[in-house]
C-alpha cells in the first residue's frame, strides 16, 4: 500500500471515515504519521471549542471574582478553586461517572457520556477556571489612571467595562492567556486516557501514538511523531495569538508591546 493510499484510508479514521480496521502488523512510518495526525483532529476540536466557550465564562467569572459583594465573589472563588485545585485527570473521571449515573436516570444525558460532549464540558469548565484566574490578575493590575480617566469622562457601568476595563484587561492578560491556550491543547491528550471511552477506536493523537507504542514495543517512533505534531500546533497557536496581541497593543509604541513568552507547563 503506497503512502497516498494510507493517507486516503486513514486520514479521517479518527472521526469515522475510511478504513475501519487499524493496521495490525508491519507498521510503516507513513501509517503512524497519518493516524496520529488523524487523531490530532480531536485535539484541535477539543482545544478550539473549549477555548472559545471557556473564554466567555472566564471573563464573567473574573469580573465576579473582582466584585466587592460577597455573594457574587464567593461562588466565583469557589469555582476557580474547585477546578484549579484538583487534577484534570480526576475531573475527567468524576465527570464521566457522574454523567453515567445521570444517564441511568434520564435519557437526556445520553450524549454526555461520549467524549465529544462530556469531555468538552470538563475542558470548558477547567480552562474557564484557569483563564478566569489570569483575567482576574489582569483586572487587578489595570492602571489606576485608566479607570480614573474613564470616570472623568463620565463613563459608567457597562460602557466603562466595554470600552476601558475589558480591552485593558485583555491586553494585560494576553501573554499569559497564550500560555493557557497552549497548555489547554496539551491537556486535551488526557481525554481518552481517563474515563471517556474511545468509541470504535476513534481516539485522539495520543491514543493512536500509544496504540503504536503498545503494538511495536518501540516508543521512539510514535511519541516523537506526536511531539512533532504538537510542536506544529503550538507554533500555530503562537502565530495566531501573536497577531491578536499585536492588534490589542496597536495603540502603544512598539517597544512597549508586551512580549509573548512561552512558558510550557506540565500537567494540570
Amino acid at each position: 500500500m503506497s503512502c497516498w493510499d494510507t493517507i486516503q484510508s486513514y486520514a479521517f479514521r479518527s472521526i469515522g471515515f475510511g478504513e475501519r480496521l487499524l493496521p495490525r502488523s508491519d507498521f510503516t512510518l507513513c501509517e503512524q504519521f497519518t493516524l496520529i495526525g488523524s487523531g490530532m483532529l480531536w485535539n484541535v476540536y477539543f482545544g478550539i471549542c473549549a477555548l472559545l466557550t471557556g473564554f466567555c465564562l472566564a471573563v464573567a467569572v473574573a469580573v465576579a471574582k473582582n466584585d466587592s459583594r460577597a455573594f457574587v465573589r464567593k461562588p466565583a472563588e469557589w469555582f476557580v478553586f474547585l477546578f484549579r485545585g484538583s487534577p484534570l485527570f480526576i475531573q475527567f473521571f468524576f465527570a464521566y461517572f457522574f454523567f453515567l449515573n445521570l444517564k441511568g436516570n434520564y435519557a437526556f444525558f445520553n450524549p454526555f457520556t461520549a467524549a465529544w460532549l462530556g469531555a468538552l464540558i470538563v475542558l470548558f469548565l477547567n480552562t474557564a477556571a484557569y483563564s478566569a484566574e489570569i483575567f482576574f490578575g489582569a483586572l487587578k493590575s489595570i492602571p489606576k489612571g485608566d479607570v480614573e480617566a474613564a470616570d472623568a469622562y463620565g463613563l459608567t457601568g457597562w460602557t466603562r467595562f466595554r470600552r476601558i476595563v475589558f480591552p485593558t484587561m485583555l491586553r494585560l492578560a494576553w501573554p499569559s492567556y497564550t500560555n493557557e491556550a497552549i497548555f489547554l491543547f496539551h491537556a486535551t491528550t488526557l481525554v481518552f486516557f481517563s474515563g471517556f471511552p474511545a468509541w470504535q477506536q476513534r481516539g485522539d493523537a495520543l491514543y493512536y501514538a500509544s496504540y503504536f507504542a503498545d503494538k511495536t514495543f518501540n516508543p521512539f517512533v510514535p511519541y516523537p511523531i506526536l511531539a512533532f505534531y504538537f510542536i506544529l500546533l503550538t507554533l500555530a497557536i503562537i502565530v495566531v495569538f501573536g497577531m491578536v496581541n499585536r492588534r490589542l497593543n496597536r495603540h502603544l509604541p512598539t517597544e512597549r508591546h508586551p512580549r509573548l513568552r512561552l512558558r510550557p507547563n506540565l500537567v494540570r
Binding site: 495520543l206 516508543p219 510542536i231 506540565l266 500537567v267
Partner: peptide
C-alpha cells in the same frame, strides 16, 4: 524536557 508536551513524556520515559 520543558518543550515536550505533558503526559506523552511520562508514557515515553517509562518504556525508554
Amino acid at each position: 524536557v520543558r518543550g515536550v508536551p505533558d503526559i506523552a513524556f511520562f508514557l515515553f520515559f517509562v518504556i525508554a
